[in-house]
């Protein structure tokens, strides 16, 4: 049987194990959560190098970020994962609290919280898993009607969820966004008609940044706008007007607020400013003469 080696099929093959681990199709949300998890773990670890006074707050926040991101990533396996995480966290807090308590009499809150967590996990394992599951996955709302806060039953969940291979994650995200937009006044969510738009805008911003670091923002600005007008296929006259407007804006920043924006940070290049270029006009006659002579 011939192996299908198209990009799509390779992506599908790479996605399959991820899908099994996550229990759902991977989307950009998972990328976001992995980012939070990695940053949280890195910053938690890094905080141990700071002076005791300076490490309390970052450790609390980094730890919280990492644990919550992990729980959200494992949301489809929480009945199993949550008690394990709870037990680990409880043991760590109890140990940390106990050693601090023995050393200087502090750490009582940590010790009590750790022991409490351990008792909760060991004594009510299933209940604990369900509680964490509802904390992570269910919509909770004080200012809303009851039906929207109720958890779907297992039957409903099965009925509503399309098979993984049929579901388009981006479309699903749009659908979710759209549904929630209509239901909720408290949460502001998007509908996306053209998924390429945000990606291209993001890439053009990255290009703008790289150009800024190379030739400075003064000249990177009109180039970015030209690239944008080409992408949206703007009428030439309007494109020129917009480019000129952007350049004038950049020039006003350069002239009135900060002239360092004209320098490329990576290269140290600073292209001649427009007023310098205008100064060159006095040599235009000479240049023309040389051109004619060379010609």
């Amino acid at each position: 049987m011939e192996q299908d080696d198209t990009v799509g099929s390779i992506a599908d093959r790479a996605r399959a194990p991820l899908e099994t681990v996550l229990g759902e199709r991977p989307t950009m949300e998972h990328v976001l959560l992995v980012l939070f998890l990695v940053v949280g773990v890195y910053m938690y670890q890094g905080a141990s190098e700071f002076a005791p006074d300076a490490q309390t707050f970052p450790r609390l926040m980094a730890g919280g970020t990492a644990v919550l991101a992990f729980l959200l990533l494992a949301r489809n396996h929480l009945t199993v994962v949550a008690p394990l995480v709870g037990a680990g966290l409880g043991a760590y807090l109890a140990y940390d609290g106990a050693t601090t308590f023995l050393a200087d009499g502090g750490g009582l809150v940590s010790l009590v919280a750790g022991v409490g967590l351990l008792v909760a996990v060991v004594g009510f394992r299933e209940r604990f898993g369900e509680a964490v599951e509802s904390f992570v996955a269910e919509p909770m709302q004080v200012m809303g009607d009851k039906e929207t806060t109720e958890a779907p039953t297992a039957d409903e969940t099965e009925r509503e969820e399309p098979p993984a291979d049929e579901a388009d994650p981006e479309a699903a995200a749009d659908q979710t966004s759209s549904d929630e937009e209509s239901e909720s006044a408290a949460m502001y969510v998007y509908e996306i008609d053209d998924p390429k738009g945000p990606v291209v805008t993001g890439l053009l911003c990255v290009g703008y940044m790289l150009l800024t670091f190379t030739i400075g923002m003064l000249y990177a600005t009109p180039i970015f706008v030209i690239a944008w007008t080409l992408w949206v296929r703007m009428n030439v006259i309007r494109a020129v007007a917009l480019t000129v407007l952007s350049f004038v804006t950049a020039y006003l920043f350069y002239d009135l607020i900060q002239d360092d924006i004209a320098e490329g940070w990576l290269t140290g290049w600073e292209l001649p400013a427009p007023d310098d270029l205008l100064g060159l006009w006095i040599h235009a006659g000479d240049l023309l003469q040389w051109g004619v002579m060379l010609g």
């Binding site: 926040m61 959200l72 909770m140 239901e183």
Partner: peptide
């Protein structure tokens, strides 16, 4: 996190991650 709709954990994660951003630099 309570007023905004959606998962409780997502709301708290957003807030905690925001606080974490401020820990970079001088304490």
């Amino acid at each position: 996190t309570v007023v905004t709709r959606g998962s409780f954990a997502k709301g708290i994660l957003a807030g905690v991650a925001g606080l974490l951003v401020t820990t970079v630099g001088i304490a």
